[in-house]
Amino acid sequence: MPNAITAFVRYVNVMNRHVGTIAMYLIFVMMGILLYSSISKTFFTPSIWTLEMAQFVMVAYYLLGGGYSMQLDAHVRMDLFYGSWSPKTRMLMDCFTVLLLIFYLFMLLYGGISSTEYALKYGEQSYSAWAPQMAPIKIIMCIGIFLMLLQAIAAFFHDLGRLRGVDILTGEDIG
C-alpha cells in the first residue's frame, strides 16, 4: 500500500478515536440537561431551552461518535451468509459493499452541506420560541458525517490492504 494511504488510514483512526472518546461523555451532558429540566420544572419555572438543547446534544453524540463506533465494530450486520464465509470472502465482499455505504454517507454529507449553506445564508433559526441559530448544530452534524465518511473510506483501504496481505493498522504482514 502506498504510504499516503497507510498514513491516511492510521490518521483517520486516531482522529476518530479521539473525537469519539470526547463525544461519548456527551451522555452526561444530556443527562445533566434533562435532570436540570425536571428539577427546574418541579421547583422553579420550566426552561424554554432544555428539550431542544438535549436534542442537539443527542444528535452531536451519535454523529460525532459514529466513526469511533465503527472502529468498535458496534454496527450489526445480518450474517446469515456472511457469518459462514471465509475471512477472505468477507473482505472481498466488504471491499465492494463498503463503497455503497460510502455512497450513502456521501449523500448524507451532500444534503448536510446544502442544508448548512441555507442555514448560513438566511441566518436560519429553529422554528421555536427559543429560536437558536441552526447553523452551529448543522455544522457539527456535517463534521460528524464527514468523520464517518472518512472512517468508511479507511475501512475500505484497510480491507483492501488485508486482501493483499498487509494489515495497514498494525503494519503486520498477514499474507
Partner: peptide, 25 residues
C-alpha cells in the same frame, strides 16, 4: 399561565413568554 409548557407557534410563543408561558415546539 405562568410556568405552563405550551405547544404554540414560534412568534406567538415569543409573545406569550411575556406572561410566563414556556413555549415548546
Amino acid at each position: 399561565l405562568k410556568g405552563k409548557r405550551v405547544f404554540t407557534f414560534p412568534t406567538a410563543g415569543r409573545f406569550l413568554s411575556r406572561f410566563g408561558v414556556v413555549p415548546v415546539t
